[in-house]
C-alpha cells in the first residue's frame, strides 16, 4: 500500500497539482476588478472546504467511537483533526492576504473570519487536551470534543448567510455563480485538495496506530504487561 502510494500516488498527485496550477493561472480568465489577487480564491476556498470535510470526518469518528469503541475511530479522528488544522491554517493565512487587496485591511471582525478562527482554535485545543491525557480518558475526551466542536462547522459555513458580513458569498455552494472556466478550475482545485486529504489521513492514522502499538510494547517490556 505504502509502496503503491509512493510509486503511483505521489507522481499522480504532483501531475495533478501542476495541472491545477496551469488551470488557475492560464486556463481560468483574469477577474476584472480583483485581477491577480482573485487567483488566491481557488486554493483558499478549496482548503476551507477540505478543512470542513476533515472536521466532519472527525465528528463522525467521535460518534463512531462512542457507538463501537474501536481503535480505528480514534486513529482516523486524530488524523482528520490534524489534517483539517493544516487546511484551516492555509485558509487563515491566505484569507488576510486576499483581504489586504480587496478590503484594504489584513483583518476585520467579520462573522466568517471570527467563526473560522474559533473553529481553528477549538481544534488546536483538541490536540492540546489529547497530548495531556492518556488511555481511555483521552479517547473519550477527544471523541466528546470532536462531537462538540462539530457544531461549529455549520455555524462557520452558514455565518455569511446568518449575519451581516463583507465576506464574499458566491451563492450557496461555492463556485456556482462563477464564469464556466473559473468554475472548472475551482472544482478541480477542490477535488485535488480532497485527493490530498485522503492519503494524508490514511498515513497519519497508520502512524497513530503504530505509535499506540509502540507504547503498548514499551509498557509490556517495562512492566510485564501491567501498569
Amino acid at each position: 500500500m505504502k509502496a503503491l502510494f509512493r510509486s503511483v500516488g505521489i507522481p499522480i498527485l504532483s501531475i495533478l497539482f501542476a495541472l491545477d496550477i496551469w488551470m488557475i493561472f492560464f486556463y481560468a480568465p483574469m477577474e476584472k476588478e480583483l485581477q491577480a489577487s482573485q487567483k488566491i480564491f481557488y486554493f483558499h476556498v478549496a482548503a476551507a472546504m477540505t478543512a470542513f470535510l476533515a472536521f466532519t470526518v472527525a465528528f463522525v469518528c467521535g460518534i463512531g467511537w462512542y457507538v463501537r469503541k474501536r481503535e480505528v475511530w480514534d486513529d482516523v479522528q486524530v488524523a482528520s483533526v490534524e489534517v483539517g488544522l493544516v487546511f484551516s491554517a492555509i485558509v487563515l493565512a491566505t484569507g488576510p492576504i486576499w483581504a489586504r487587496t480587496a478590503w484594504n485591511t489584513w483583518w476585520t471582525w467579520d462573522p466568517r473570519l471570527v467563526t473560522m478562527t474559533i473553529l481553528f482554535l477549538c481544534y488546536v485545543g483538541y490536540l492540546v487536551v489529547r497530548a495531556s491525557l492518556s488511555g481511555d480518558a483521552r479517547k473519550n475526551a477527544c471523541a466528546a470534543m470532536a462531537i462538540l466542536f462539530g457544531i461549529n462547522i455549520p455555524i462557520t459555513w452558514l455565518s455569511i448567510q446568518w449575519w451581516r458580513t463583507i465576506h464574499p458569498d458566491i451563492g450557496g455552494l461555492p463556485g456556482t455563480r462563477l464564469e464556466p472556466k473559473m468554475r472548472i478550475a475551482f472544482w478541480f482545485s477542490v477535488l485535488l485538495f480532497i485527493l490530498l486529504f485522503i492519503p494524508l489521513v490514511a498515513i497519519r492514522s497508520r502512524m497513530e496506530r503504530a505509535a499506540k502499538a509502540l507504547r503498548a510494547l514499551h509498557r509490556e517490556r517495562l512492566f510485564g504487561g501491567t501498569e
Binding site: 491577480a36 482573485q38 493565512a93 491566505t94 492576504i97
Partner: peptide, 30 residues
C-alpha cells in the same frame, strides 16, 4: 503587472510552505 500580483505570489508561497512544513513534520514523526 496585474493588480495584487505580489499578494497572489505571497499567498501561494504560504500554501506551499504550510504543506511542506506538515510533510516534514509527518516524516520526522514517522
Amino acid at each position: 503587472w496585474p493588480r495584487g500580483f505580489g499578494y497572489m505570489v505571497a499567498a501561494y508561497a504560504v500554501v506551499w510552505l504550510i504543506l511542506m512544513a506538515y510533510f516534514w513534520a509527518l516524516s520526522r514523526r514517522a
